[in-house]
Design a protein around this nucleic acid. Sequence first.
DNA 1: CTGAAAGCGCTTACAG
DNA 2: CTGAAAGCGCTTACAG
Lengths: 348, 348
Amino acid sequence: MVRTGSASVAAGPTLAVVAREAGVSVPTASKVVNGREDVAPETRRRVTEALDRLGYVRRPRFDGARPPRLVDLVVHSLEDSASGAVLHGAEEAAHDAGLEIVVSAALTRSRSERPERDWLDRLVLRGSAGILFHRAEPSGPQYTWLEQHRVPFALIDPVRQPPPGVVSVGGANWQGGVTATEHLLALGHERIAVIAGRRSTMSCGARVAGYRSALASAGVRHRPEYLRHADPNGAGARRRMRELLDLPEPPTAVFVCSDRMVSGVYEALAERGSRVPDDMSVVGFDDLPEARWLTPALTTVRQPLSEMAATALHLLLRMTDGPRPESIRTELSTRLVERSSTAAPPGA
Amino acid sequence: MVRTGSASVAAGPTLAVVAREAGVSVPTASKVVNGREDVAPETRRRVTEALDRLGYVRRPRFDGARPPRLVDLVVHSLEDSASGAVLHGAEEAAHDAGLEIVVSAALTRSRSERPERDWLDRLVLRGSAGILFHRAEPSGPQYTWLEQHRVPFALIDPVRQPPPGVVSVGGANWQGGVTATEHLLALGHERIAVIAGRRSTMSCGARVAGYRSALASAGVRHRPEYLRHADPNGAGARRRMRELLDLPEPPTAVFVCSDRMVSGVYEALAERGSRVPDDMSVVGFDDLPEARWLTPALTTVRQPLSEMAATALHLLLRMTDGPRPESIRTELSTRLVERSSTAAPPGA
DNA sequence: CTGAAAGCGCTTACAG
DNA sequence: CTGAAAGCGCTTACAG
């Protein structure tokens, strides 16, 4: 075990250690490492052998070569089933660009637990090439700090409206809302309800706006009692679905603002013996993994999370080399994935 | 504006130049660049401004003082639904230890695409504190390389039997197989089949061995035709389930070696009008997210993936500071999670 | 909060 | 060919 000090084990031996091992001076070892000609064959052999034996790794030079660069991905929760797709997209794009991804849920955690500064300090210390935030936004002071330290960052599917000038990538939420609603209209539905997430979330607002537009275009009256806001999880949605079912004139179809909430909708329907899609059509949004596992499999509006993450990474890289990209908000198109949760309304 | 100092262009200004420009010493400029606290706001502003104006580019560090340490997590696929839990556990444990996680699928990819050495070199270059492999194992030469460079590593739920001396963390697969089978036996089943994954996978072998033991203990004869190996995915399992259904005396219950395969089993059963759990009981293994989304929700043997990842990380950390841990193979206990896919056999 | 001093791992120029 | 010496860009420890 040859070790210089308390330095990281994996950092490997220094040239000095190798030189000592080979019985030569540091400059001579340096020449061998750099492939210089002016070294005696026997000396070269001894040094090479020591290099190999100790597993010497060149440290980056001051001028040209850089160590692999790291990009930070901050997610609001690693338990969110959307995180997988985001990570997948970011990791692939990073790999192609010769970068690596550091994943953390640190931002969210630090809000309550520890000074956020810690994390940001470390990030700059190791020279992060930039930060991607997925459904997690920096706080006001963090925005300032990031600007000051010129750390490029971009938001993926931000929950709230980002401050002016902040780069973000999202899905075409409004268009997706239109698509979902038009699909139901085309099947013959007119009593179409929406279960939306929290009023404050940006994506949800746009999805609901799309729903309203589609309704208006089709000349179908929007009924206020058909729009329900819920906590963005199964339990929240279950409650709202029950309320919709209790209406004097219940809907024949629901557009649920995120697949995340659909399990609760299915539960509420099962409680009342309402079958999907025979008695009630359900359309989701996002195309999270659960959309395929639910029974019946969920017809949903696919948001290309992996592509969004990859796009955000590319934007980040461009910011590193130059000015902010022209387009501050990028929207990738959404599309309907038809599965088995929608049909014509009963009696149609 | 930050430039990235691409190798070809003339090296950017040095910190010394920036410091002069800002009218401060080099150490002070260094502090600003590194986000240190102990700089007067006005000084910080002047330095930041000079940094911007001159387009300073951070040079890589080369001395003994270390930036925050990084641990690598290599997964076989970011699209595997188990990856989320593994990442979650690793990230939390890392965070608590003041480390950060670099995620990659690089190993798997590199097998075909590019020289593995690239990736490993980079890893050492940036001073990885060690590597966690989830269901992805280093190749022979990689093992050698890792040993030589003294990069600590540990395997999480390895697919194959690791070489002697390699540290790994898994679930109690044999015990889990016993648990699953005993559960079915207790419900009154005697005709219990197993759909296993590939013969070569270690965890699967242990699970099947547990199944046999439980059968033997209960004095139930093992029927060879009830053991089927399948490709570890839905399609593979669907085919085997059909075969089991075609048997002269089909089973009344199936133990499926991984939740990953259960969707195919459900499909095969639905095709034949066989209801779960009334006509056929199904037990899975792993407790992946889909176990909750399937209908009926899957009774399965939970493998504590997050805890396994956290344990592997702790072992890794111990290896960094000293010799290899005593215990080369660590097994965390598994437990049955009862949901709705099991019941007494028909006619019981 | 600031910066002189010492130090890091490495390379270059050059005397032997 | 070899290696002592000087130097590079940077960071840390610490005295003020």
